[in-house]
Design a protein around this nucleic acid. Structure first.
Lengths: 232, 232, 232, 232
DNA sequence: TATGAATGAGGATTCATTCAT
DNA sequence: GATGAATGAATCCTCATTCAT
């Protein structure tokens, strides 16, 4: 029974080949349409006709700019990932104290993690991770890794480096990043209802900072854990 | 242009199906095939023909046991989620000290999070969360929520409750759960290469415990952060 | 058994279709193929593959021109009904006498009723009347109703109105129409063998006229009934 | 392109063959289920599973009693046609006058023609006339032909034969039968709305009688045409 | 004999891709 | 370069029929 061809070879699009289209404006127009459709329906659920219609071009033009659905999908993910993700966490807003600065970071991370763009990219990349492994790498490098790198670098810079005891800044940054995901991130990724009120985000952020500093701050009294009071 | 295009519903109210298949063995056989295909290709990418072939039954038999692809998918997810996930984190192995016990928990959580079953469920549920929101709920209840509930309950039980200051056990458990995901979980979800050596997992586990206890332990000296030494 | 079987509607609100095909020639070509297959096998018995093969186009093209089998079926019936049926009985050919004129009408009606087109439409419309009630309306309006309307109008126009006593012209026309169906129409509808020789049609037509005028003619001697002599 | 087998050979069921079932009760039970399903969905639209379920037997039993769907369909039509149709017009109820008697006949014919059974048989037989030509013959013989035969015989029997001048009784009966279909029968066959109030049926019946007798009655004055007054 | 699970060809429909205009 | 009609393989699902129990 070597009969029916089992699955379409999604990733045979290795040859960058033809793609004769040249107008950057039209290319961008197509990518915008692709973004809307892929974001809503995922890779398998999106159809090239839909994308063409949404982008306002013909299917022929689509194929002039992108050799295949797979290539278009990758281009879309790469573009979002490279151009939009990094903008969401570029630098650390310094606060009055180190704790203040870290709270800014924590809130920024939570916002990054729960942003529609990030969640959508997470969703489509996770679901196509086996088919397009490159996309996961790019996403990781431009999203989580960039954020933790910035934080790790900050941890080792004066003046905060004076106050901290951080033997492995990368790992410490990743712990902080993990703490910022408490309760919210996993649920958001599965589109389960989540409390994203500013008060709750603030609580999560301050809790993350407190737990982090209780370990990584060089001296000073241990801070007791926080508790969430919804109305506060 | 007289008529609206008439829709040939005709007699949908037949309820011809209701899955007449009854043999539990064959049902299990089908679910096994479905597991392989859904796990590899996701919901949209899997075809009923493929599943039938893989399960060693005809397409007709598939539909004798499951009314539609959606129903089969849900049955598969529900079964994995209800029957296999809870087995992966049932109880807390007590150690000599509270830190030992928490290290056992941390290792168990990391293993749960990085298990192929859990990752696969995560992947397909995330990618179909919009279509099948119930599945996310079930997964959450049987996986992460169960784990954190068990941990939260343990935190409030003597003797460890004597030694801890945990105003919000659920949140504390979720912070611990988040800490256990440091570095590993996000990468694993995207099928990126990940260091899952026992040594590294041990390091992550002990780091989580240390950070956790530095905040939630009622008294005692602050423990300095750990550093990973790969060769150790 | 948690969840209700989720229905994967997902995104039916796409309106991906709307029949993009535009070439009238190809549309006509498809309708011709559809005519042959629907006429022979009826709605349920016809398959889109067959129609595509017969029309000499691919299945995809079929769906570029018609959104579904139901739409194609309706288009086919509507076209036949609107464009071809009315041509078969447009006006009344006046004869030397009123009886002559009515005989022309009768023969035209019998030909209409027994024409392959009319019989085919009758057959498929009757068998799908419950599913596509609009088609029956359209057929009736363009076929029988048009014919009886024309006749009813003629009955009330001078000079024949002078000679006739017709209190209810519509009903009178329908009686005449019914008389023209004597012996032939019912059998033809069931594809039973039928004597459609000109001589027999002539006999039926003249019998209808005679019976009709014996009641509706204002004065003059009653005409005795006719008898059919096959050899004549 | 002698490629795909175009249509299933519906009528290959010539060999009466196996059909090992023997219990007449079970056979009747199956036919009752078949009646309901075929009546509602037609031949193509009915499924053997549906029929089995509706009849309360297994599919295996179905095939023990009837070799195929085609055979079952024919058996169902034959049974209805032979056993139920003739009961609907068995004899002529004599009235005080010949006109009275004919009015009884006319009303009985109209009721026969518009009865659900007759319309259903008409529908399914017409739609499958090409596939099962035998059924049309049987239906005709047991329905319209029987009715017109009885009437033709009555026309030639004393005392009415004395009063009538009927050179071709069969044809005369068929004209009467045709007149009884005025306005109602064609519409009913297409499931178009039809006035079946007793008053209207009465009007149609009396009109048919009047028109008939104005030609076929041996003597007496011409009766003027009737007009329908709904409220009367 | 009665059952109903199993079969697999065939149904309507979709969609990535090509190519003549 | 842009278009969109045409293609046909692949999709989910149905159903007449068979056959082991």
């Amino acid at each position: 029974m070597a009969a029916t061809p089992p699955f379409p070879d999604k990733d045979k699009a290795q040859v960058p080949s033809a793609a004769t289209g040249t107008s950057p404006a039209k290319r961008a127009q197509i990518l915008e349409g692709a973004a809307r459709i892929f974001a809503e329906h995922g890779y398998e659920g999106a159809s090239m006709s839909c994308i063409a219609r949404d982008a306002g071009v013909s299917k022929g033009t689509l194929y002039n700019y992108f050799d295949s659905k797979a290539v278009l999908f990758c281009a879309f993910i790469e573009q979002c990932t490279r151009e939009k993700l990094p903008l969401m966490f570029r630098r650390i807003d310094e606060g009055a104290t180190m704790a203040d600065s870290l709270e800014h970071v924590a809130r920024a991370l939570i916002e990054l993690i729960t942003s529609p763009l990030s969640l959508m990219l997470n969703r489509v990349i996770v679901s196509e991770a086996a088919t397009f492994p490159e996309l996961a790498k790019t996403f990781w490098a431009n999203g989580p890794q960039q954020a933790t790198s910035i934080l790790a670098a900050w941890l080792t810079r004066a003046p905060q480096s004076e106050l901290l005891d951080v033997p492995d800044p990368t790992f410490a940054a990743e712990q902080f990043y993990a703490l910022c995901q408490t309760h919210i991130a996993g649920r958001a990724r599965m589109q389960l209802p989540v409390d994203t009120s500013p008060a709750y985000i603030d609580f999560v952020a301050r809790s993350a900072v407190r737990v982090f500093l209780n370990t990584y701050q060089r001296s000073g009294p241990r801070q007791p854990p926080l508790a969430y009071v919804p109305d506060a």
